[in-house]
Nucleic acid binder design. Sequence first.
DNA 1: GTGAAAGCGCTAACAA
DNA 2: TTGTTAGCGCTTTCAC
Lengths: 336, 336
Amino acid sequence: MANVRGASTILDVAARAGVSRQTVTRALNDMSDVSAATRARVIAAARELNYRPNRHAQTMVRGRTTTIGLILEDLANPYFAELASALSRAAAERDWSVLLCDVGPDREKARAQLESIVSRVDALALTGCRTDTLALLPPAVLAQGEFGLPLLMLDGPDHPRLSARVVIEVAAGMTAALEHLAAIGRHRIAFIDSTVGPDDRRDFYRASMEQHASTWPGLDISADETVEGGGEAARAVMSAAPDCDGILVYNDVMAIGVLKALHASGRNVPQDVAVIGIDGLQAGRFTTPELTTLAIDKTALASTAVSMLATILGDTGDPHPLDAAIELQLELRGSA
Amino acid sequence: MANVRGASTILDVAARAGVSRQTVTRALNDMSDVSAATRARVIAAARELNYRPNRHAQTMVRGRTTTIGLILEDLANPYFAELASALSRAAAERDWSVLLCDVGPDREKARAQLESIVSRVDALALTGCRTDTLALLPPAVLAQGEFGLPLLMLDGPDHPRLSARVVIEVAAGMTAALEHLAAIGRHRIAFIDSTVGPDDRRDFYRASMEQHASTWPGLDISADETVEGGGEAARAVMSAAPDCDGILVYNDVMAIGVLKALHASGRNVPQDVAVIGIDGLQAGRFTTPELTTLAIDKTALASTAVSMLATILGDTGDPHPLDAAIELQLELRGSA
DNA sequence: GTGAAAGCGCTAACAA
DNA sequence: TTGTTAGCGCTTTCAC
């Protein structure tokens, strides 16, 4: 452990085994041209010194790698899980890797994690739809100029420091959802919003309702972005407007709560009330009836994100615009 | 781009800007003691050369980091998502990071990903319950001796090359589940197994059934480890044994499919048939009724795994045994 | 089969 | 304010 930082290095092992450092490299990496006796001696020395190779030193001499950090609040939320899955696979296409950072609910821990993540990655992909992960970044990173760490926002708020941004374009999709509801005879459609997300979904709903104000004034209620939150909001909707016959929900997780609450209150879906969520989660197939949803193509979202980062990092000759919108696609399952 | 590998280095930027490399470091890292004019010149040069700092070189001189690779087949599966979440948080406690590797269904792509991951991490956490990710590792890694990359198996098969292993201990939990079913008057209990997982769950079920063979011979059916697979198996069970009044299922994802199939066939859960899954997923709360389950404490599993790795990597003075079992805990929700 | 030298790209410490 | 020197820990030549 003769090292500056307390860890033993290849030189310590070499000294202990009475050989040169190259011999240690050969022995430990199972290369040829080492006698069995020498190899055994080296391995023993390494074991005694608790030697562990420094991956950064290895990588530096062998080549360079690209790592992007993915910052999210809770991977147990299926939206983030599907996003992370897609991003990991899209990154693998370029031989990049994804460093996962599930920050959890504790903001102080989150700050500490981000503090150390930022020096380990070449770029950061931030999710913004639930917690604004941007606000948790070390101030020094936010203060950096154009040669600071590239920051990519996935479906979250804008910020001058961002290098790129992928947004979810809701207007066309929500129009399709509302038209579908009208087509199946629903004209008293409420909207359940998230208390923490962006306002564009609710704003679009309100604007749409105003156009048909003669039939139904519209009703929107905000709740926590969870299954339970969705359930509470659904109860509030049905109590405020018992004749409501359709509900559009901010996202699928909340919509699952809506389905549960409607079931508990004895309402049939979709006969009494039709329900449409947003996100296209696989978890929307876990319910009965399955959840009709405005699906986000997470594979497209992820590969767009990776292309943007490739442009920023100079890894491609085929520049990609640094702002993109992903459209929602109405996916009819059983709930509407 | 005067570099050996094609990428420009700090020296290229220094040359282009007509300054020393140290000045480049200062300018690009927003350090003090650089004149605004110089900084601007350096930034311009960096931009023109498409300069990107090498994180490995930076880390090497600043300190060392520990990164563990998490290999899994599909993060969209909520079991893996909850596991990954827990592991990321447990790793963060020690200032380690987790490199995510969602290998997907394509085995050739998976092999290629693993090939490059192994040289980027200090240890690998493998999940074995669905795909045997061990079989996808580069042969060279498997051939390595005791100073090869540490390999930790999470709930998967044993292998001589593994450095550590966390298993799920099913016996006590399954006994508790079967006793609970008996206590609520169920005596014709079938088991739905996975075609790909380990056999211990089914074997334990069969052994338990033999002890009470007078009342019910037992029935187990295997299916694909998916929601759809669970549904098919449930239909098979009800057709083979229409008087079956309880089903224990290999895992929660399949059990969700069982609930759907029973609902579709007009059986009430839990009145007609009680259902118990295994895993304790949050997704088990998405259904109506909510899924009763033998829960795995994923936080404990993850922190055990991290402690084991700390022992192997010599990061702790408090050695942890390299084999551990996590118990299942019966969590009564609504389906039994 | 083994060792010596050179260098991966970067930053901290000290000079100028 | 800027430049020079000296490594960080490892692997790849090329000698012996």
